[in-house]
Structures are given as C-alpha cells and as structure tokens.
Design a protein around this nucleic acid. Sequence first.
DNA 1: TTGATTTAAACAAACGTTTAATTAACAGGA
DNA 2: TCCTGTTAATTAAACGTTTGTTTAAATCAA
Lengths: 209, 209
Amino acid sequence: MEYNEKHIKIIEAAEKLFSDNGFNGTSVRDIAEAADVNLAMISYYFGSKDNLLVAIFKYRGENTRQLVSEMIENKELSPLEKFYTLIDFYIDKFQNQQCFHRVMAREQIIHTHGPVATAILSVKKTNMELIKQLVQEGQRKKQFKKEIDISLMMNTLFGTVNHLYTTKHYYKELNNLQSLSDEQFEKQLRKKLSVYLKTLFKAILTYED
Amino acid sequence: MEYNEKHIKIIEAAEKLFSDNGFNGTSVRDIAEAADVNLAMISYYFGSKDNLLVAIFKYRGENTRQLVSEMIENKELSPLEKFYTLIDFYIDKFQNQQCFHRVMAREQIIHTHGPVATAILSVKKTNMELIKQLVQEGQRKKQFKKEIDISLMMNTLFGTVNHLYTTKHYYKELNNLQSLSDEQFEKQLRKKLSVYLKTLFKAILTYED
DNA sequence: TTGATTTAAACAAACGTTTAATTAACAGGA
DNA sequence: TCCTGTTAATTAAACGTTTGTTTAAATCAA
C-alpha cells in the first residue's frame, strides 16, 4: 500500500487522537478536523474507520524488521552487547512512537481475530524470530544459559517497557517526580530504564539458579 | 459505597462487556440487556456510564490490601518465600479476574486524571508500599541486594503478568498451542509463568552484577 | 399514604457512511 | 496553445442508526 502526504496526515492525526481518547472515543469528524481534511475524504481514502486503524498498524509495522536484523547480524558485537543494543532500540521505539504504542497496547487486548490481530501478530512473529536467533547464538557461544523461555522473556521485555510508557503518569506520581519538566522526566526515565533492563536481562540470560 | 445484588449484577455485566468491546464500544443498552435490568436502572443506580466505570474500580480495588499485608506480616516465611507467595497471588488475581484486568489495562492508559485515575493510583500506591516493606525487610536480613529500584521492579512484575494475560491469544498462536483446550492452556500458562517469575525475581533481588 | 423502585417511551446529540454535485488534474487531438 | 473528454479529488449536505440520559407514569414495599 502506497500512502501519499494526505494519507499520512490522516493516519498521524488519527494515531494521536486514538492514543488520547481511544478508537471508539474518537469520531471520524475529530480526525478530519485534526488532519484538516474533509470528513468524506477518510472514507474515500481508507473505506472505513476500521480500515484506518488497520492502516495505522501497517504504516508503523514496516521498518522494524530490517533495523533489528541488521543489528543482529553485526559481527562486531557479542551476543550480550547485541541484546543491550536491542533493549535500547525498543526503548527508543516506545519513546519516539508513544502514540502508536498506546494505540497498540489498547487494541491488542481487544482484537483476538481479524485484520488488526493479523497485523499485530505478524510484527510479533518477526520480533520473536529475530530474538530467538540472538538467544541461540548466545547459547552456542556459551555466554547465555541453556534454559531460556524466549516467549516469556519477550513478554517481560515488552511488558515492562509497554507498561512503563503507557502508564508513566502513574510512575511520575508514585515517585514524586511531578516537579520535573516533561523533557527532563522522559530523559531520566529512558536512562533509568535502560540501565535497569540491561541488569535485568543480563541476569535472565546468564544467571544459573 | 454499598452495593446490593442488582448493583453487582450490573457491575459484573459491564465489566465483561467492557473487557470484550471496550468502554466506548459498549452501550448502556448492551449492559442493561446482559444484566437483565431496565435501561434506566443504570442511570438510577450509578448516575452515568462514567460513574459505572468508576464503580467497577472501587468494587475490585477493595480486598487486595488486607490479603497482601497479612501475607507480608507472616513471620514463618523468609522474604524470598514471601515474594514467591506474592507472585502467585498476583498471577491468581489476574487469572481469576481477567475481565477486570483487561478493563484496567485499557483504561489506565487513557485516564491520566479524574476519578478513574484516582482510583487506579490509590491501588498502585498501596501495592507499592507493601512491596517496599517486603524488599526492605529482605535487605535488612541481607537476603536481597542493596540497590533495587522498587518502582521499576513492580513495573516488571505487573507489566509481565499484565501483558501476558491481556495478550494471551497471541502467546498461544506464537507458541503453537492452539490445540490445547482453554483450561489446559490456562493451567499450563499459570504454572510456567509462576516458575519463570520466581527465577526472574530471585535474580533481580539477589543477583549482584 | 408515602417514598423507593421499575418501566416504556421519548429526547436531542453524535455517530459512521453515502450521496450527488463541484472542482482539479491531465490526457490526446486540433 | 487551446479545447475537450475522462477520471480523480474534494466538498457540503443528508442518510438512517445509535448513543447516553431524562421523563413521567406505573408498580412495589412498608
């Protein structure tokens, strides 16, 4: 699917509104106004509001694979270093596309079947494969431990990052960080999370119990 | 707030529908039909649909504190054993109240302010305090390591359990477990998650890097 | 008889989508 | 360069539903 400027304007406006108010909490009229296009253009371009949601997932789901797989095939880094890079990659992804990930976090709960679920599943499958490769490389080189449940481990990675970024307003409150500016807070959060996750995953990957 | 049978019938019907279709994806008429009450009774009892959502959070947020704090004050168990009990407690909670936790997972993303956010924050504060006590006890007894970011650690606990249970249909697919019956799957998931999290948190709490 | 509960009906507002008319873009032929 | 035929893009208006909430009458319990 090719998207022109107007498609993208609509997609990004919808993404922001879905993120703030949810899919059903956003009207097509809201989107049209935010994207500064006529109401009917949304049906004309995407067919329906549901299809627009699917378009958002397709639009955002394209680039990831190549980036991650290039990084994994990098010969310079040890498996653990690669994993550290992967962690920072996902943190950056959540940080830079917070609207999208909020939409995804909400919609993946409801859509167990249908086109949205299919789009999400395909991204998850890709992630799973790539991480599996990386873990197996680490195990071959005896740098990771033998018994690693990759699926649950991914759940911890995405679950932690996802939960933290989608509910960061609670994190801010619980840690009395309300005085920080948004930028300061985001910067600090990112740094802390990065250090924390690297320690955590070093333990998961190497700690024999 | 006192809830009679009819209140609870409405609350539980709403919880199930919100879980399946989202808050804005569920009409008051749907709820009335599912709860087998007249449409107007919902306004009569709760005032509005928004208040009904708040009522769900209050209804479910009541019991937790006492259960957890009794468990933490139990003198028989070591801090690590207590933490293991806590993990199983939360797994059971998510497993037994999946509808509620799906609603919560979705709504906590959107509600950054207002009565829903307040209700959620109060539950989180309680959890945080109790876990903090437990971690500090473990540190005093030299069984846990010194530097532990409790807030991020909680994020991992809730993030992992939450993400896994709210997106278990993807987990099932990704691990080719479609042939399992729902009961078998749930049973297996619970067991695996319990073992996994105990290993994981033993590492987080004791592993010095 | 009084006040709480329950009901069917009605309310205006908002919803996603479609329609039919209008404008813009652009091709090929003079 | 201009005219013309055709398709694509854009618009305001309207469509029929559905929405959350309210009303006013009816039923119930005490």
